[in-house]
Simulated scan of single mutants.
Amino acid sequence: MPPSFDNKVALITGAGSGIGRATAIKLASLGASLALCDINYDNLESTKKQCGSVPTLLEDVDVSSKQEVEQFIKKTLEKYSHIDHVFNCAGVNPTSIPLEETTDEYWDKLVNTNLKGVFNVTRGVIPHLKSGSSVVNVSSISGIRGSAQQAVYCTTKFGLIGFSKCMALELGPRGIRTNVVAPGYIDTPTNAGIVKGGEAVTRMINGNALGRLGTAEEVADVVVFLFGEESRYMNGAVLEIDGGIKMSSTTAK
C-alpha cells in the first residue's frame, strides 16, 4: 500500500521542472498539499496543472534572496498553518570552465543558489518544523567525487552534503530528519549533457552500469521515501541515485 501524505504540507523549491516537478506530482498523487516555488512562474503553473486538484501555493522565488524566501514561507504558513516536509531542489547546473577562467559572477551565481539558497530556506523553516518533519536536499554525484573544470559546482554540492549532515545532528534531537539525494545522469531539461545532445548523451548513457539515463521520477521516488515513515531511522544519509556510476568526467544531474 503506498504511503499517504494526507494533511501533510510539502514545500518544494525548483518545482518548475525536472526533479522538483516530478516530486511535486508524486506527492500530490499521495495526497500532500503543496507550496511550490521557482524563478520561472510559467513553469510552476505547468507543474500545478499536472498535480491535479490538491491545494497548491505557487510563488516566484529566487532562493538566494533571504527576503523572497521568508515571504514564501510566510505565505505558506498563512495558507496551511504548518510545514511538514521541505525539498530543497532549486539549483544551477554546471558549465565546464577551467578555474583560471572562472569569473566572480559565476562563483556567486552557483554558490548563492546551490548553497546559500538551501541555507536560506532551511534557516527560515526550522522554527516552523515539528517532530516528524523532514528535509531532503539535492546534491549530486559531483558532491561525492570531483570533476575537472567544475570546481565551483562541486564546491557547492560537496558543501551541501556537509551542511546537511550538520543539520541532521542539529535537528535530529528535535525529531526532524535531514537527508540528501545525489543524482547521477538524469534526463532533465537543465542537464548540460542533454542540452548538448549527441555524443554528450551517449557518454552519459555509457557512464553507468545500467546503461541508460535516470528519470526525474526515479529521483522523486527516493525523495518521497525519505519523507515517509519507512525511512524514519534515516538521518544524515546521502543516497546516490546513479545507476552504478563509472569513473567519468561527464556532467551529472
Rank of each mutant, 00 (worst) to 15 (best):
Asp38Ile: 04
Tyr41Ile: 13
Asn40Cys: 13
Asp60Lys: 11
Lys48Ala: 04
Lys49Glu: 15
Val54Cys: 03
Lys49Pro: 02
Leu58Arg: 08
Tyr80Thr: 06
Glu70Gln: 07
Ile83Leu: 04
Asp42Gly: 15
Val69Asp: 11
Leu58Ile: 13
Lys75Cys: 09
Ile73Phe: 02
Ser64Val: 10
Cys51Leu: 02
Asn43Thr: 14
Glu45Gly: 04
Gly52Val: 02
Cys51Thr: 07
Gly52Leu: 06
His85Pro: 10
Ile39Arg: 15
Leu44Cys: 00
Ile83Asp: 03
Leu57Asp: 02
His85Val: 05
Ser46His: 14
Tyr80Asn: 04
Glu59Pro: 11
Asp38Trp: 06
Leu36Gly: 02
Glu70Gly: 09
Glu45Arg: 05
Ser64Met: 14
Val86Asp: 03
Ser64Asp: 11
Ser65Val: 12
Cys51Val: 02
Asp42Phe: 12
Tyr41Trp: 08
Lys49His: 07
Glu45Ser: 12
Thr56Cys: 06
Phe72Ala: 06
Asp38Pro: 02
Thr47Asn: 00
Ser46Leu: 13
Ser65Lys: 03
Tyr41Cys: 12
Ala35Tyr: 00
Lys79Gln: 11
Asp42Asn: 14
Thr56Phe: 05
Val54Glu: 06
Leu34Thr: 00
Ile39Val: 11
Lys66Ile: 13
Leu34Met: 09
Asp62Met: 13
Val54Ala: 06
Thr47Ser: 09
Leu58Gly: 04
Ser81His: 09
Leu77Arg: 07
Leu57Arg: 09
Lys79Glu: 06
Val69Ser: 05
Leu57Met: 15
Ser65Cys: 06
Cys37Ile: 03
Ser46Val: 13
Ile39Gly: 04
Cys51Arg: 01
Ile73Val: 11
Cys37Lys: 01
Ser46Phe: 11
Asp38Lys: 04
Asp62Gly: 08
Asp60Thr: 10
Phe72Pro: 02
Val86Met: 03
Lys66Arg: 12
Tyr80Gln: 07
Asp60Gln: 15
Glu59Phe: 15
Glu70Asn: 09
